[in-house]
């Protein structure tokens, strides 16, 4: 079945939605504030003759005129990290203060494949970016224990959960081929368990951010509804003005 046609009744201008899904992704990097300012990162790109354009809504995001953002001095020095523009959104909404403890419940990169290689990818990137304030554990987020640590709650949590990845269709057109309703059921229960554990381990008054890269309401609104029903928490509202290269802005409820 055509995965995206499910959404036709939900979307006003479905043709525009389909056209958006077919547009190729631009090459975007985030400037790593630990190591460089956006100004210095841009000066280095100028020196390499690589054109760059800031992505208005986020001062640290730059769209580059190259297919190889990893092959730049900025990337080598850990000033730049290649990521989709939208991937900066969960952290922007989470918005931790200096000194706070944040649990990134699904920090290792890489869609729904699960293997230890993702853990070394996480460590490799963290060290290249000079992230010295991070501790990495390898355990199931659904029943996560804070046992190894000398504290018993987090200030904030970020659940960028594994999902059906429908939204990655712009970089991976084959993504929908693995799609099934059975997978949605299975992954939604995993997502709910991760989100609920994050709520339980976050202090009263703290913030939990839930994000996916899928359109499926089964993995988004339905998961939030169940977590809100079953845990001691309430939904908040965050807004981030996303104005990506001529596309309209919007706000994201959390």
């Amino acid at each position: 079945m055509d995965v995206l046609s499910r959404y036709e009744p939900l979307i006003d201008d479905f043709a525009a939605f389909e056209a958006a899904c077919e547009r190729p992704l631009p090459s975007v990097v985030r400037v790593n504030g630990i190591k460089a300012t956006p100004g210095r990162a841009r000066t280095a790109l100028d020196a390499e003759g690589i054109e760059h354009e800031p992505c208005g809504w986020h001062p640290g995001l730059l769209e580059l005129d190259t297919d190889h953002p990893g092959r730049t001095w900025g990337a080598f020095h850990g000033w730049l990290h290649g990521q989709e523009e939208v991937s900066a959104l969960p952290a922007t909404v989470c918005d931790p203060e200096p000194g706070e403890r944040v649990w990134a419940a699904c920090a290792a990169p890489g869609g729904k494949d699960r293997n230890l290689g993702r853990l070394s990818a996480l460590r490799f990137n963290a060290e290249r970016l000079g992230v010295t304030s991070m501790a990495v554990t390898n355990r199931d987020a659904r029943n996560y224990s804070l046992n190894p640590f000398d504290f018993d709650e987090f200030d904030r949590a970020l659940c960028d959960v594994p999902c059906s990845c429908e939204g990655t269709i712009r970089k991976n057109p084959d993504a929908p081929e693995q799609w099934s309703l059975g997978y949605l059921d299975e992954i939604a229960s995993t997502q709910e368990a991760i989100l609920r554990r994050a709520i339980q381990t976050t202090r009263p008054g703290g913030t939990v951010v839930y994000s996916t890269c899928t359109f499926a309401p089964e993995e988004n609104e339905a998961v939030l509804d169940r977590a809100l029903d079953r845990e001691d928490c309430s939904s908040g509202r965050a807004s981030a003005s996303i104005r990506a290269c001529g596309e309209p802005s919007g706000s994201i409820p959390t």
Partner: peptide
Amino acid sequence: AFRGAIDSPIAIESLGI
């Protein structure tokens, strides 16, 4: 090197860089 303080010892995958 880890920016911060935490009880020692600790059995986890990584701590700082």
